[in-house]
Each structure stands twice: as C-alpha cells, then as structure tokens.
C-alpha cells in the first residue's frame, strides 16, 4: 500500500514502524522485515511466526505491557507498544 497516512504506526522494542491497517501484530512485524522476536527460554534461540493460527505459541510478544500475547492473533492498533524477548527482556514464560 502506498498511502502513508493510512498506515498504522506502532513501536517494536522502541523502534518506530508502520503497517497496513487490519493486519495482525505478527504480520506487521514480518512485513517490516522482523522475522523473530521471541528468545527461547533455554537456548535463547530466535522464534517468530510458525503455525500462524494461535496453536504453537512460538510468536509470544508483549503488547502494551501485557506479556505472552500471540502475535499472530492480536490485531495491530495505532500507537501499540510491542516488545519481544530477543533483546534480553525476561518478561516471558511466567504462566
């Protein structure tokens, strides 16, 4: 999509990004070239989208301070603060 004003703006780990309206957070990240955002608990290995439909929980992400949201299911909203765990943030995996 070309018209910039129709884009939804959000931040990922503090970086300002934009995506098409109506996309999921996962799609917004991937179409911005971010293919991984979660670090696994044991090995710190990168993970992103896998099943794409809410089954695998690989895509967990923190959205507006709420941890462990499935990026493939959350619809992107204007001004969302999206954070991954690859950058060393340890909010994940506290069930």
């Amino acid at each position: 999509m070309s018209s910039v004003d129709r884009d939804v703006r959000f931040t990922f780990d503090g970086r300002e990004l934009a995506a098409e309206p109506g996309q999921t957070v996962g799609a917004a990240l991937v179409t911005n070239g971010v293919t991984a955002w979660r670090g696994t608990r044991k090995e710190g290995r990168p993970r992103g989208l896998f099943c794409g439909i809410g089954v695998c929980f690989d895509c967990l992400v923190t959205v507006d301070g709420v941890a462990n949201q499935r990026a493939c299911l959350v619809e992107l909203c204007e001004g969302m603060d999206v954070r991954g765990t690859l950058a060393g943030d340890e909010t994940e995996e506290t069930r």
Binding site: G48, F50, C51, C56, C72
Partner: peptide, 19 residues
C-alpha cells in the same frame, strides 16, 4: 528457525493480512 512455517499458516497469513 524463523522462516519455517506451517503451510496452512502461510495460507492464513495471506488470507487474513492480504500480504
């Protein structure tokens, strides 16, 4: 590795996001 997806997951991505 990131970039490995379920085949249906790709399908769902396209259908839901138009991308």
């Amino acid at each position: 590795l990131p970039g490995v997806m379920a085949a249906g997951g790709i399908q769902a991505f396209i259908k839901a996001n138009g991308a």
